[in-house]
Amino acid sequence: MNTTAAQFPYPWQRCKIIHLVRHGQAMHNVEGDKNREALLSPHLFDAELSPLGLQQVGKLRKDVHASGLLDKIELVVTSPLYRTMQTAIGVFGSESHADGGNEDFSAISATNYPQIMAVELCRDRLGVRPCDMRRRVSECQALFPSIDFSMMDGEDDSLWNPDVREPEEEVAARMVLFMKWLWTRPEQEIVIVSHGIILQHILNVLGNDCHPAVRSALCKRFDNCELRSVVIVDKSLMGADSTL
C-alpha cells in the first residue's frame, strides 16, 4: 500500500465545509471589460449587479434550492459591498423570485433561513477604485434589513483610501485574519459571498500544503456567481496551519 497517497481521517469537530461564491456580474465588470480606466469613475461607486448579474443570481438560487444545499447552510458571510449583498440575499434569502432576473435582491426577509452577516475582512481589494468603496452602514441597513451588520467597523468607510491601492500582500494578510476569525465561529457549514481576488487569496491560504497541481486547479479564477465548495481541517493541534 502506498501510504503517501492515503487519505487520513480527522474528527468532524475539527472540520468545516466552506462554500465560496463570487458575486454576480456587476456594472464595474461590464464597464471595466470595455475600458480599465472606467474603474476609476465615481459613477461606479459601490457598483450594483448588472441585468446579467441578476439573472446569474436567479440561476444560482434555483441550483442551490434544487440541490438541497440551502438546508445544510448554517451561516452566510458576505462582503459589505452592494453587489455581494445583492448576491447573498438573492441566492440565500427566503423569498422565491419569478423568472426573468429583474429583481433587485435587496430588502428580502431571511426569516427561518441562514443568518447573513456582513464582515469587512472579506470585502474587495481596498482603495483608489470607487466601485470598491462601501456605503454608510445606516444606508446598507435600510437597503438590506435582513443582513446582520454588527461586525462592521463603523458607520463610514474608513478603510478605503482614494490615493493608495491595497497591496496584494496586505490582501493576503487580511485573508489570514479572516480565516482565523472564521474558525472561531461555531457553525460548521458556511457560505462566503465575496469577490474574485478575495476568494482566490482565501484558497491560497487554505491550500498551502496541497500538491501544486491541486492548488493550481483549486485557486483558478472565479467566474461571476460561481460556487466552489471545500472541506477545511483545523490542524493547529498537530502544529500545522488550518488547511484543506
Rank of each mutant, 00 (worst) to 15 (best):
I18T: 08
I190V: 15
G196T: 01
L54M: 07
V21N: 05
A173D: 07
C140Y: 00
F222V: 00
L69F: 00
S138L: 05
G32H: 00
E48M: 09
V91N: 02
D157S: 04
E168C: 10
R125D: 02
Q25A: 06
Q7V: 08
L40S: 02
I190F: 07
N161R: 09
S216N: 15
V191N: 03
L182T: 05
R136A: 15
M151D: 01
T84G: 09
G239P: 07
I18L: 15
I197D: 07
E120T: 11
G24M: 04
S94L: 05
D163S: 07
R136T: 13
Q7W: 09
I190R: 12
N102I: 04
E168D: 14
R22M: 02
H43M: 00
Q7S: 14
V91P: 02
G53A: 05
D148Q: 04
L199W: 13
W181F: 11
V30L: 04
F222K: 12
S106N: 07
Q25S: 01
E169R: 12
A173M: 04
P130S: 10
T184Q: 13
H43N: 06
V193R: 10
I17K: 14
Y10R: 10
Y113T: 02
G207M: 05
V191F: 14
I202K: 08
R134T: 06
R129N: 01
G207T: 11
A66R: 15
D132V: 01
T84E: 09
I73D: 12
T3F: 15
T111A: 11
R36I: 00
C15H: 10
P51K: 02
P130D: 06
S138F: 03
L218H: 06
D234Y: 07
L199R: 08
S194T: 14
L54P: 06
D223K: 05
G53P: 10
R125T: 15
Q188E: 15
E169S: 10
M85D: 05
D241A: 11
I192N: 02
E168A: 10
A5H: 09
H65K: 13
A240K: 13
G53Y: 01
S50Y: 00
T3K: 13
R61P: 04
E103R: 06
L143D: 03
V21W: 03
E189F: 01
D99S: 15
L237D: 06
G68K: 02
Y82D: 05
I18H: 08
L177E: 12
E48C: 10
L49R: 01
D71G: 07
N204A: 11
G24F: 08
E95I: 12
A66C: 12
D157A: 03
V231Y: 00
G68N: 14
S146K: 04
D124W: 03
P145I: 03
D63I: 05
P145R: 13
A172S: 09
G127S: 11
V230E: 01
R134E: 05
R185Y: 02
E74H: 04
S146V: 03
G24A: 08
L39T: 02
I147V: 10
D234V: 13
A88N: 14
G68S: 08
S158Q: 08
D71I: 06
E155D: 07
E187F: 14
D63G: 08
K72F: 02
A110S: 15
A26E: 01
E187M: 13
V214D: 15
G154Y: 08
I198Q: 08
N161E: 10
E189S: 14
N224Q: 07
V137N: 05
N2H: 13
L44D: 00
L121W: 05
